[in-house]
Amino acid sequence: MGATYIYDDSFDGLLTALFTAYCAAQKPDAIAAESEFEDGLFVEKVPLKTDPRKAAKAVNIISNFISLDAMHNIFYAFLAESENHGGVIYDYFKFGIEKGRKADKFLHDPRVIGVHKLRDKLHCEKHRLLGLIRFKKVETGAAGEINSRRHIYYAEIEPDNNVVGLVAPHFAHRLPGEPWMIHDLKRGIAALNDGQGGGANWSVVDISLNGAPQSAENEDIYQDLWRAFLKSLVIETRINPKLQKRCMPVRYWKHLVEMAD
């Protein structure tokens, strides 16, 4: 009968579990997130308390004994909220400790493929959203004044994975002088930039809004111009809706100014 380590769904929790497993004489069979774990007859459940110091040690072990790339892979695989990612990451971690620096070269091995696939899934969605995020200029009112401005560029997203913190730096460099918010409706979190300038003035916060914010003056005009532009850009003899859908999956359309309704 093997043990399953249970962590609290946080990244630090996962790292704590990896470190604990690394030190244990009797290795656990699996690692699972609390929210995903299903009790079974032959499973011994070992809940772990998240410990930032242990998490930091896990980071050291992964970076030094495997590689910085492996650390990056594990973080991205964690953010790709796929079922059993804790288990997939644990298998990869064990394999990495066994093979050391060259672990990521075993591209045919299922233990490596598992984590690489999740990482790629996340990269793909992140890159996609850099293009598909649409800001709307909305009023904040006197009460919500940000940096002495009464508007904010506001975007709604519902991504498959938890990518809001990954796309934020891109926009922080691009629009440092404007207040903006990227709101992940699915997870109730948002990346927020106060528009004070500089590339690092953003943070991820928990958020819930009551009702959709009010469009600022001229917002509708630019949305309308954008739609008109796209319409006249199409070459009629090349119409190909299938290709369009393949490049831009329909699940993203809801929040696109040009595709909604």
Partner: peptide, 19 residues
């Protein structure tokens, strides 16, 4: 005090009805 930068890899923002 400026706006914008360029991404080395390029970014697609939408796809027209012609794909």
């Amino acid at each position: 005090g400026g706006i914008g930068n360029a991404a080395e890899s390029g970014i697609c923002h939408t796809w027209g009805a012609d794909g």
